[in-house]
């Protein structure tokens, strides 16, 4: 059940003046839902491309199902990776793309593909190049789900999908995964939306893995303490501080530690307020801490904010 199916060792992917992957070591087990989180350009798509042999590492080793996927039909036939900017043959309509996928995935479920197409209100007889961004994403999502490949990658599958369609995707993913367990790697920067679906979280930032932990371990592993700055600082002296914000004499400080019940009681006595830190907040804090404390000036950074979206 928990066999390792993906193993990356010292992966480096070097572009002209950029380390897209900077010594990545990673090990993924079978039948789990992984979140591959990080900002745009952090290396998510590069990592997935290298693992699936769609791109080549400068150095290092990537093993999938125990072997290099490159030109290896035995391995490739168990993988599905529709990228965010996936291209399709010029004359293809969604139904053609689905029938193509059916030729290559032995577990392909055409009934599921049809149901999903209806759910997403996808015009299956319109040329793919005439589809909207959201409909294009839906085509990729449907291929990914209906392929039932043992190792399925979803590369920011929500682009252009509205909130209803995104929820539909998450719901169908959980449903189908429950019935047909497999390894899902969900690359996303909309962390809040997917946080509860994930069993394990891998955060990548500027080509490096900065977090690799079970989602349940992360939940509650950090806490934000707010109140009078003086009291907050005294209370948190000597602790691992991730982020600090002040407003006049008030401070709100996030620490990368959990508090015991005695400490919680103590904080309450001091009149300090404790609030949980969401996975998204934690990832943002950690990413910014890695960027050399840029978080202090960036305020309440959010992965899905406009500036990040605008860079696409």
């Amino acid at each position: 059940m928990n066999d390792t199916i993906v193993e990356a060792r010292n992966l480096i992917k070097h572009y002209k003046d950029l380390n897209a992957l900077d010594n990545v070591n990673l090990s993924l087990s079978a039948n789990r839902i992984y979140g591959l989180l990080g900002r745009n350009g952090a290396g998510k798509t590069t990592l997935m491309s290298v693992l699936t042999a769609q791109a080549f590492a400068t150095s290092g080793e990537a093993l999938v199902f125990g072997a290099n996927a490159y030109e290896n039909d035995a391995v490739l036939s168990r993988i599905c990776f529709i990228r965010e900017s996936q291209k399709y043959p010029d004359d293809f309509q969604p139904r053609h793309a689905f029938r193509s996928a059916a030729l290559f995935y032995k577990n392909w479920d055409q009934g599921l593909a049809d149901r999903l197409a209806a759910d997403f209100q996808l015009p299956v007889k319109r040329r793919i190049k005439k589809l909207s961004r959201g409909q294009l994403s839906a085509v990729g999502v449907i291929i990914g789900l209906a392929s039932r490949a043992e190792l399925t990658f979803f590369d920011e599958p929500y682009l252009g999908l509205d909130a209803v369609a995104r929820q539909l995707f998450y719901d169908r993913l959980v449903e189908d995964y429950a019935e047909h367990p497999r390894t899902i790697i969900l690359s996303s920067h909309l962390i809040d939306e997917v946080a509860n679906l994930l069993e394990h979280v891998v955060v990548i930032d500027r080509g490096r893995i900065i977090m690799d932990a079970d989602a349940e371990e992360i939940r509650g592993s950090a806490v934000t303490v707010s109140g009078s700055a003086e009291k907050v600082d005294a209370f948190l002296a000597g602790r691992k501080i991730l982020h600090r914000e002040t407003l006049g004499s008030l401070a709100s400080v996030t620490v990368d530690e959990s508090l015991g019940s005695r400490e919680r009681a103590e904080a309450q006595e001091l009149g300090l307020e404790l609030s949980p830190v969401s996975l998204q907040q934690l990832v943002v804090r950690k990413t910014m801490a890695g960027a050399g404390g840029a978080g202090h000036t960036a305020g309440t950074g959010d992965f899905s904010d406009d500036t990040l979206e605008a860079r696409r």
Binding site: C80, F81, I82, Q86, K87, Y88, P89, S100, Y105
Partner: peptide, 11 residues
């Protein structure tokens, strides 16, 4: 590119 998405080998 489409064939790569369906994990088809280059060969």
């Amino acid at each position: 590119p489409f064939s790569q998405g369906l994990s088809i080998s280059r060969r």
